[in-house]
Amino acid sequence: MNILENYGLKNIYIEESKNYPNFKLARVIAQYKGLYKIVTESNEKLAEISGKLRHKTTDLVKFPAVGDYVMVSFDENDSNAIIHKILMRKTIFSRTAVGINEQVQIIATNIDIVFICMSLNENYNLNRLERYLSITWDSGAIPVIVLTKSDLSKNLSKYIQEVEEISAFSDILVTTSKENNVDKFKKYLKKDITTAFIGSSGVGKSTLINEILGENRLETKEVGKGDKGKHTTTGREMFPSPFGGVIIDTPGIREVGIQSTDVSKYFLEMENLVNQCKFSNCSHTNEPGCAVKKALSEGLIDERRVESYFKLKRESSYDGLTSKELEHKKLDQMFKEVGGLKKARKFIKDKQNRK
């Protein structure tokens, strides 16, 4: 039996692996500091990257990540396997690396379905949900919105309606901590499908995964004061589902950087409006012929969604900038109505000279 088949193996990776006959196909199922856990067709092993791969790799995105299919070599003794090659990535779910300028950190790869979890208590935040949806659509995966802890909500129908309005036709699952939720997830869990649970700390991802797995594989904690959940997951790890395919658990993410993300895939109606504006450089504030302002005045779009779109659009344009360039661009955005930073400086200087 090929154990890899229990870990979402697709035929495309079997075919690609034939290009490297000197190595064996494996999948990264967990990531630790400097080490990885992989599964091959016959067993699980710890692995490290080869010296050649380490020396020629400077970007975080070029290191192996949970979900990657890799080509490895190993002896039959207890030594670690060596990762020599990362195969084609079908999808990449990433965020801006914390504390590392101009670097993107991969959360997981080769994901087919992303369960975006948001609890219906103090975690409820439509702007954050739009951020997750933008990144998921751009990654190539299919988003499924999971509204957790519905039993703690006093405005359930209102929240569901608000989420439906921004869901972009994504499926919405409503779960509760007072009943079993497994049947709601079964149709998404199939033999060659890789799923991932993402969301803020304490929204109940680990609890749901434990329910699906039928055992307490992940540590969970009771909801804290003020109905806030407590973050327990500290790494990314993959688990075979009893219904087929695999589930990736991810650490709670307070905020996801959206640099390098193409938000247009999620905000299609906003992209269409912007393209209808009379002027190509429309700031959507006071210009005549602004399709965005017209749609707002007619109640066709929500002001919160408009603000969310432009905020994410600005962030996505910061990709690849140095810290100095980033600071300059943000200042330009602040002074956009007066023509940018240079004109703002000239205006201030002229004003001082007139005194």
Rank of each mutant, 00 (worst) to 15 (best):
I166F: 03
N281E: 09
E219C: 10
M71T: 14
I198F: 03
H84P: 02
E215Q: 07
D183W: 00
K265V: 10
G140W: 05
G51P: 02
A81R: 14
L341R: 07
G245F: 02
F335K: 06
M88D: 15
R345I: 14
L321Y: 00
T195C: 13
L87P: 04
L120F: 11
S157V: 04
V174A: 04
V182Q: 02
S94F: 07
F347H: 15
W137K: 10
E237S: 15
D192K: 03
T136N: 08
T176C: 06
F279T: 01
D192E: 08
F267L: 15
E219A: 15
R217S: 13
V223S: 07
Y20S: 09
D112K: 11
K349A: 14
T195A: 00
R314E: 15
E327V: 10
F115R: 13
Y132A: 11
K330R: 15
I83W: 05
S200Y: 00
V163C: 03
I142G: 09
S317V: 09
Y159E: 03
D262G: 11
G229T: 06
Q103D: 13
T58P: 11
L300G: 15
H231P: 08
I166H: 04
K24V: 09
N125R: 08
S157H: 02
K324S: 14
K225N: 12
T175V: 03
K90T: 09
E122M: 13
G214N: 02
G320V: 10
T232D: 06
V256H: 09
S153H: 01
S260H: 11
M270Y: 08
T136V: 15
S308N: 07
T261Y: 10
L147Q: 00
T322M: 08
P64A: 09
G339N: 04
I86N: 05
P242V: 10
N22E: 15
R254S: 12
I198R: 02
K349W: 12
A26K: 06
Y13Q: 03
G320P: 04
K293L: 12
G245E: 05
C277H: 10
M238K: 02
S79H: 13
Q161L: 02
L218K: 00
A196F: 04
N286D: 12
E15L: 02
L126P: 01
Y20D: 08
V146L: 06
K342C: 08
G226K: 06
E219S: 12
N272C: 11
V223M: 08
H55P: 13
E5Y: 01
V70A: 12
E327S: 13
L53C: 07
G339L: 02
Y188L: 03
N101D: 15
S134G: 12
D183V: 12
Q31G: 07
E315Y: 07
K90N: 09
D68F: 10
Q105W: 11
I160C: 01
I12C: 12
V70P: 13
S17N: 05
S153K: 00
R304W: 08
S260M: 11
S201D: 06
E130A: 09
I106F: 05
N272F: 11
T91V: 11
E41Y: 08
G34Y: 00
E211K: 02
I3H: 01
M118T: 15
K294D: 15
G245M: 00
A168N: 14
D78S: 12
D262W: 07
